[in-house]
């Protein structure tokens, strides 16, 4: 973990030089601010990613709330079982009782679980409404899943619509993360409410950003929405989370969150660079012999 973070932070300069050289050649890279903080999974991780959005912070809180309650329930059952094993094993308790009813205890073990469920349901329902409230966004990005890349269309920037492919394993540069880094990340402003409209161009995909608490299926013919507010400039990762065929594991999502001014500068630069709307439409080579053409068997 430390090694990874160290290398990621330490090689920021190299990343700026090599990572997205196409963008950074002539003008300063407007997404540079995102390189200072990387929110990626780390070795032996035991809990959620560090919350990158208010939504993820609330999910994290509710998860702890529910999980502690359930841990107490499991521990209670465990203690009962250990007690039963010790106290009522045949060598200790030679004559079994024949009790088969106890109305009080049977009522208690119905009522108490109902109360526990009520305690869980209240904050849970509040969070469902919070998650559903995508009103008044600062901007909307239409995310389209394809086999096997993502397409990002910025609704507020006419003409800005580009594709994002995973960096194949054999082209990974220092500072990039294998299986998570992409060629053209989604760039978003920090602190603004961003709405995602999620759909698909072919099969089902899953738009899943664990560190931001966002997940929705990408369904052809249907447009689902989700939203986020990114707390802090940085790089955030996600992956496709609904089986979509051959390269299901090879279409990650990378988000560069930068201050609003940098974001606006980036939109101008991106519009200039991404003119043909088809940045790199050829799938990049994959290190695995993926045998795509053999698909066409009758």
């Amino acid at each position: 973990m430390m090694r990874r973070c160290g290398s990621v932070l330490g090689l920021t300069c190299i990343l700026m030089l090599l990572g997205h050289a196409a963008l950074a050649q002539n003008t300063p890279d407007p997404t540079a601010a995102a390189n200072a903080y990387v929110n990626a999974p780390h070795d032996w991780q035991l809990w959620f990613p560090k919350a990158g959005s208010p939504m993820q912070a609330k999910i994290d809180w509710l998860m702890q709330y529910v999980l502690w309650i359930m841990t107490a329930v499991v521990a209670f059952v465990g203690v009962l079982m250990v007690y039963v094993i010790i106290r009522f094993r045949a060598s200790v308790n030679k004559v079994p009782s024949q009790t088969t009813h106890n109305t009080l205890i049977e009522v208690v073990w119905i009522v108490v679980p109902v109360i526990i469920l009520a305690i869980i349901i209240v904050p849970s329902i509040n969070l469902i409404y919070y998650e559903a409230d995508d009103s008044n966004p600062y901007m909307t990005v239409t995310v389209t899943g394809h086999q096997w890349y993502w397409e990002y269309k910025y609704n507020s920037v006419p003409g800005l619509d580009y594709t994002s492919y995973m960096i194949p394993d054999d082209k990974i540069q220092p500072g990039e993360i294998r299986r998570l880094s992409v060629d053209h990340p989604m760039v978003l402003p920090v602190g603004e409410k961003i709405r995602f409209v999620i759909t698909s161009g072919d099969v089902l995909h899953g738009f899943y950003l664990p560190s931001l608490g966002v997940q929705k299926y990408a369904i052809p013919g249907t447009r689902l929405t989700s939203w986020t507010i990114i707390n802090k400039a940085g790089t955030y990762y996600g992956q496709c989370n609904q089986i979509c065929g051959l390269d299901h594991d090879a279409m990650p999502i990378e988000i560069k969150a930068v201050p609003l001014a940098d974001y606006l500068a980036w939109t101008k630069q991106a519009l200039a660079n991404y003119t043909d709307n088809t940045v790199n439409t050829q799938p990049l080579s994959s290190p695995m012999p993926r045998n795509q053409l053999a698909d066409a068997t009758p």
Partner: peptide
């Protein structure tokens, strides 16, 4: 069975929360 089913049931309660499913679905 009894103990491990309770463990699986406990994570089932977690996953039943639609709000948490946004993070945990399909992982």
């Amino acid at each position: 069975f009894i103990f491990l089913f309770v463990v699986g049931g406990a994570t089932g309660i977690v996953l039943a929360n639609a709000a948490l499913d946004q993070e945990l679905h399909n992982d």
